[in-house]
Design a protein around this nucleic acid. Sequence first.
DNA 1: TTGTACGCGTTATCAC
DNA 2: GTGATAACGCGTACAA
Lengths: 343, 343
Amino acid sequence: MGVTIKDVAQAANVSVASVSRVLNGHGTVTDRTRAHVLAIMKQLRYTPHIGARSLSTSLTSTVGVLLPDLYGEFFSEMIRGIDGAARRRGLHILVAGLHGGADEAAAVLGSMRGRVDGLLVMSPHVDADLLADSLPERLPVVLLNSGAGGAAYSSISIDNYSAARAMVQHLAGCGHRRIAFLTGPAQNFEAQERLRGYRAALAECLPGVRESVFQGDFSEQSGTAVGKALARKKQRPDALFAANDMMAIGAQIALQGAGLRIPEDIAVAGFDDIPVARYVSPALTTVRVPIAALGAQALQRLTELVAAQAGKGSDAMTDSDNRVAAHTLDAELVVRASSGSIR
Amino acid sequence: MGVTIKDVAQAANVSVASVSRVLNGHGTVTDRTRAHVLAIMKQLRYTPHIGARSLSTSLTSTVGVLLPDLYGEFFSEMIRGIDGAARRRGLHILVAGLHGGADEAAAVLGSMRGRVDGLLVMSPHVDADLLADSLPERLPVVLLNSGAGGAAYSSISIDNYSAARAMVQHLAGCGHRRIAFLTGPAQNFEAQERLRGYRAALAECLPGVRESVFQGDFSEQSGTAVGKALARKKQRPDALFAANDMMAIGAQIALQGAGLRIPEDIAVAGFDDIPVARYVSPALTTVRVPIAALGAQALQRLTELVAAQAGKGSDAMTDSDNRVAAHTLDAELVVRASSGSIR
DNA sequence: TTGTACGCGTTATCAC
DNA sequence: GTGATAACGCGTACAA
């Protein structure tokens, strides 16, 4: 096996304690010995064994990242944001995809003991109960884009409500009156919030106009289905606002396939600003979600929790500390210049 | 802190040794005691502390995944493939992005000691020398999409050469004669292989026709630049084959912007089959890289190496084991049906 | 300032 | 079949 702290101590003619002190800068060491030890460490290419360290410190300098098996850009952007923030703090990230349902989530949650100092969780299958049940010890947790934590867990999400509201306001401002909403899965927190924003804006900008909500599931396919259904209708909406870009794209292509012009016959708007949104024609008008920033913020929040817990020990503080109000980030309305899907 | 093996032993009125035996199924235990211990473990919601275990077994059941900071779909697909394969084997993955150059790579490499049983590395900045220099102990490594390992390290990649060759053959088969190639960074192994495939097919199918290679850097921007330059030329190629999809898309949009029709005036082909390739119009003809499968295969290979090393100890085998010939996966030519970018 | 010795949670090797 | 107990590598009182 690798070179240990003992080897370094022996080679430097000091005790392991001194080497440890040099390593962590805690105790007091002569500049002379410090330099000597440092030199030996470099020469021997010594790297501390994290597992051993975490045994005595109960710190791993690693955070767990639990993500749903969503495809594509969203996933990678989130990881990039988290990884960047983690690297800046000298942390490592342990990534796991939560494919299955609650049971698998519980298993993964459990297997995190001793591996991580905290958890970043983003999953529709995880709620406060499951967390409380299958979480090892008092592990700090930050929930991402989920309202499931309630008051018990810290959470960070974008302001889905306001963003959706702003989009509908924009559509109304463009002169559209019959604005339909293509919503996501009913249990999905983000979908709920976006729907809420749609309704609020409708009540606000177009009083008396009835809402028109179609059910989707965030997939392109469901967007296609609704697009086709819409194309067949005698009385079509002026505009369709989909709860995410993939559905918007599916709908847009279906509508175009049925001979309708975007945005002349019907305007289309999305949510997320995934890269593809720029390349369909006309380019999609959408809401930009600062995914990477979201991940970075979440990690930031998590490190605070970790520090707080480490500092205060098992004082009574832990509870109120975790109960920090949910924090939200703003999203940005993206209206593409040249050939937009809204006019 | 959490409940330890000691707590379980005490609650079950047995020794820690017995609990450990139940845990790992190694030694011999009465069915009766086994059941009892199991019950207590469940009741106490005990989870083994991995750090401690790895200290005595020097096994972590975790593999490190080092990826370049490439954006988007490629990144996430790769992680998905690896994560799936890892989960099936009960492994965890530690993900790190290699943003900077060689020095940062070395640092990250070093910090993996004690954390992982093996490493999956995909980075243009990592070569055999760096690996040998900054790798802790005899850590098994599998290189992804890189020829940098030489004979010293196991590597898995797609057959860039054959795939590019097949694409050019296809283009020639469609009647194109003046086929230009938009290449990637000169140091990039994959770009080199694709260029080699282009040249081979040219020599093979269109003897006498001079090659026409433009320099790009895998970015959409560089594709745009070449597209614009091409549009201004008096004598244009029949077809443009870009070493990746982003460049192909940039070029296609630029060519269209200059009033040229795709594929009538000039055919465009790409490489990767990123999702956007399906949504640009006309949809891109491209080479599908089985990214997730690639990741899964790499993990598979890595676990074999890990097992081999663990089994044989530090026998003389390790060397020849690692020297397994580089393994390649096939890519698939994707010719989109309706409105393709090639005709 | 420096060194000794113990504990962290687990596994594995012995005796019993 | 079961129970002490020595590692594993490191941090850290405590003593010197």
